[in-house]
Design a protein around this nucleic acid. Structure first.
Length: 383
DNA sequence: GTATGCTTTCGGC
DNA sequence: TTACGGCCGAAAGCATAC
């Protein structure tokens, strides 16, 4: 038997949640800094440094998007698509600046609600249940927030309001840029019913395919499936999630994250000057990457347990290999020698068998442990 | 059988 | 005609524990 979430009245109290998403964020930051860019096709680029225009588009404003320029396409392709425009602008990424803008906007938003949860650099959830008495009031509050962000940071955003995080998130994507979509508790079920199942955050390609094999493509069809069949097909955990999601039920709280800003992984990736076919050709880069991730970890005062090597091959396929240490560490030699061994393994497994080479190399740390405070003692006692 | 944890891949921004 | 980043967290795939 699936333990269903609350109906509108039973169980947990009903909530009003907002999801706020800053529009085409990096590009809009550039427009805010330099208003004369407004109305021109604007493209924020990540240059890899390998050749003059090698790299990809990070973000494009909506004017550039009309020409087919969007995130992830090669810079050279973006240029060719904008060839007929006289006034298009390409800028390199300026993360420190975008981070400052984000901090400013997030602090503005926090003034409107007690419960605030940031997600990434340009999104957040707020629970406004205690701030408003109805979804109509929530709509007014959302408009106030939009205006305040505009006043303080010269940025537009898209807001979704719903009875939970899932609905709010889907709603914020419904109309953009500068959108506002309110889905109250009574219309949430029919709102999700019309959506393709993969619009539900948490339903990926695998689950989508499995559902398709059961003849289900819309959320509305998922509601009709017997709960026991769901458990049989997906296992208890996923079945419960699907059962609830199909009914617009999501109990995930807006978390005033105790671990806000604490990354779960730290990675550094570089594009090699020349494609490599052996580990020795990448020794210098590997050393630098190890130094870089370790610096970042030490700056946050954490030690790591898991070390991963990432390769992006010339055909853009990705390969990774990772190893967990017996105990947490923040020692450079441990990191460097483990990374070297992983790289050798990975090269032996992926390169020697083919004629492909390595284009990009990365090192990633994860499974962190806080070094500060009393943790050493509790760790000792715990053992 | 299921839960849990570790490793690898996927995909968003 | 082609062109191709640097991160992150979540999902998926396995192995082992309970």
């Amino acid at each position: 038997m699936i333990a269903a979430g609350q109906g509108n009245n039973g169980g947990a109290a009903s909530r009003i949640v907002m999801h706020i998403d800053l529009d085409y964020f990096y590009a809009q930051c550039e427009e805010a800094r330099n208003p004369s860019l407004g109305g021109k096709p604007l493209v924020v680029c990540v240059y890899s440094g390998r050749t003059e225009d090698s790299g990809v588009v990070s973000t494009a404003n909506y004017v550039a998007r009309k020409y087919g320029v969007k995130s992830g396409i090669p810079i050279k392709l973006a240029k060719s698509r904008l060839a007929d425009t006289a006034d298009s602008v390409l800028l390199p990424m300026d993360m420190p600046y975008y981070s400052k803008v984000s901090e400013n906007v997030m602090s503005v938003i926090q003034q409107f609600a007690e419960k605030f949860e940031q997600v990434g650099i340009d999104e957040c959830f707020v629970d406004v249940t205690s701030n408003v008495g109805s979804f109509d009031e929530a709509r007014s509050l959302a408009l106030q927030i939009k205006e305040s962000i505009r006043q303080n940071a010269q940025l537009s955003c898209s807001i979704g309001v719903g009875p939970n995080k899932m609905i709010a998130k889907i709603a914020s994507d419904f109309q953009k840029p500068d959108g506002l979509t309110v889905v109250d508790s009574t219309s949430a079920k029919e709102f999700v019913a019309g959506l393709a199942v993969d619009r539900i955050p948490g339903i990926g390609p695998k689950t989508t395919l499995q559902l398709a094999e059961l003849g289900i493509s819309k959320v509305g069809e998922l509601v009709k499936i017997d709960q026991f069949k769901l458990v049989e097909e997906f296992g208890r955990g996923t079945a419960t999630f699907l059962y609830n999601a199909a009914r617009a039920v999501d109990e995930e709280p807006v978390v005033v994250a105790a671990n806000a800003g604490e990354r779960k992984q730290i990675a550094r990736i570089v594009t090699l000057k020349n494609d490599a076919s052996s580990s020795t050709e990448m020794s210098d880069e590997l050393y630098q990457l190890c130094r870089a991730v370790l610096d970042a970890a030490r700056n946050r005062d954490v030690s790591f347990k898991t070390i991963s090597i990432l390769l992006i091959l010339t055909n853009l396929n990705q390969k990774t290999k990772s190893r967990s240490l017996k105990t947490h560490s923040n020692d450079f030699d441990v990191l460097h020698s483990t990374a070297r061994a992983l790289l050798d393994d990975l090269m032996a497994a992926t390169i020697s068998a083919t004629d492909r080479k390595v284009r990009r190399l990365g090192v990633r740390l994860s499974e962190f442990h806080d070094n500060s405070g009393q943790n050493t003692m509790s760790q000792f006692i715990g053992d």
